[in-house]
């Protein structure tokens, strides 16, 4: 078996008295799409954020592509450059045009030549369908367009792994699908993805495996068909019936 892209062993994390992650074990294979679902407060976002050490962990070990996560510093920055992350609130840089948002990290972290960075950035904006917005500023874009720009910005670093932390939770309903379309395309192209989401349709369509979390623990994991149609745990069943009731 090849080296997992992500490997978490006995990962523990507390926020004060709150035990948000309880001895998590999780492997993500290269090109695998893992969708993490669960009620709010279950620790799924925190789990996602520990993988590039935006949240340091208290105990356990996380390896990305076989390398243990380094301490904060140059080495960690290097690792983060290879791990794309898409946030719920987009987090585009407000003072930069969409194009400059996409070019910033390739220019400053990878030291790519400006012309190359620009050509690549335009190609990525084309791919996510907002090439015509390249010169706009983030505030001039709809939420869906901003999130697609943020995805293009992450892809510009040629990541070997993409983390999505509730990428559609801040979007108006009619904009959710345009972002999910881009993500489904990525999954199809073989990107390794960890996706925290409430979009069950996406999980069914694009996931190789669904991970259900509750109370800081992984309660159940299975391929989507099995997870949705033959849910084993009581907690996952009651969560799904609540989510799918509407």
């Amino acid at each position: 078996m090849s080296t997992p892209m992500v490997s978490m062993r006995g990962v523990d994390k507390r926020f004060g008295d709150l035990h948000v992650l309880r001895s998590i074990d999780l492997d993500v294979a290269p090109q695998e799409v893992v969708v993490v679902i669960g009620p709010s407060g279950s620790g799924k976002s925190t789990l996602c954020r520990t993988i590039n050490r935006l949240e340091p962990i208290d105990a356990g070990e996380i390896r990305v592509d076989g390398r243990p996560l380094p301490e904060e510093g140059a080495e960690l920055a290097q690792l983060r450059a290879d791990v794309g992350m898409v946030f719920q609130s987009f987090n585009l840089f407000g003072h930069l045009s969409v194009l400059d948002n996409v070019m910033l990290a390739p220019l400053k972290v990878r030291r790519v030549a400006k012309a190359t960075a620009r050509t690549e950035a335009m190609a990525l904006l084309e791919r996510v369908g907002i090439a015509d917005k390249a010169d706009r500023f983030p505030a001039q874009l709809s939420g869906g367009q901003q999130q697609r720009a943020a995805i293009a910005r992450s892809l510009a670093m040629h990541p070997k792994l993409m983390l999505f932390d509730e990428p559609t939770s801040a979007l108006d309903p009619e904009m959710v699908s345009e972002v999910l379309e881009v993500m489904v395309g990525l999954a199809r192209d073989g990107m390794t993805m960890v996706v925290v989401t409430h979009e069950m349709g996406f999980a069914r369509r694009a996931a190789d495996r669904v991970v259900f979390m509750d109370d800081g623990q992984i309660v159940e994991e299975a391929p989507p068909a099995e997870f949705f149609d033959a849910t084993r745990s009581e907690r996952a069943r009651s969560f799904l019936s609540n989510v799918l009731a509407h």
Binding site: N52, L54, A81, D82, M85, L92, G94, K108, V109, S154
Partner: peptide, 19 residues
């Protein structure tokens, strides 16, 4: 006024703190 999220995004892309 500079949202903490933007700092996080920059760090997540591999920019160092000074950058």
């Amino acid at each position: 006024t500079v949202a903490a999220g933007q700092v996080e995004a920059a760090r997540a892309m591999g920019l160092r703190l000074s950058q």
